[in-house]
Amino acid sequence: MERAKFIFALVMAGVLVASCGGGGGDAEPAADEAPAPAADAKPAPDLSQAGSVAGKVSFGGTTPKNARIRMDADPVCVKEHSGIVRSQDVLIGDDGALINTFVWVKSGLEQYGFDTPAEPVTLDQKGCIYTPHVLGIQTRQKLQVLNSDGTTHNVHPLPRNNREWNQSQRAKGKPLVRSFPRAEIMIPVKCNVHPWMKAYIGVVPHPYYAVTGTDGAFSIENLPPGDYVIEAWHEKFGVQEQQVTVQASEAKEVSFEFSG
């Protein structure tokens, strides 16, 4: 009888230890919670004489025709729209304003450290379209993904530099909250249930970024004086960059023109 007790206890304990212990050992801390890079150690910039960079992004070529997006496989999406829905990949406003261009300070801020903003950035899914289409976020800042639709989506960012994830979200489901620990221009986000749905997230290590609106304008405020490289990114037309020097309290004008 002793034998039976022994074996029972040992084997059950062994399997439990191996599974839980083994599992625990393998569980790497998720990338989201990885310790922050040494940025915190760097000083915050002196903003007493801060200037700004602002301007316009325009498009010089012939305006391409946006393809028709057919949502017919999901009646919930169809109901949210009247008339034909078109792709958002290239949106041109009045006077050739190039909408949804991501403009950010590519270099010149390396010596500074920045706090992570407490308030999250929101990406909504509405009418089976991502709103906004292009957005910026600071490293480690919370990204909050909402689903305002009455249909299920899956949220699938496809980063090269951050951890990939892919999560389903129920109709009107609870917000998903995630973050990206490493800078990356740009992370495409896709919904596989509605393959036309795409958003782009620019993850930058500082708060100096902007997305052009319907007038193609952007404005990066509160920038400490210094030499910078400003980059403009567009999903179809690629990137352009410009060197600028911002003097104390100067409002610098910078413009970009893409030709397609």
Binding site: G14, S19, G22, G23, G25, D26, A27, A30
Partner: peptide
């Protein structure tokens, strides 16, 4: 076999 079981149980707890 025991090792195989430990390995598959670990799959519950890894990233993803």
């Amino acid at each position: 076999t025991f090792l195989a079981l430990a390995v598959i149980m670990a799959a519950f707890f890894v990233e993803g």
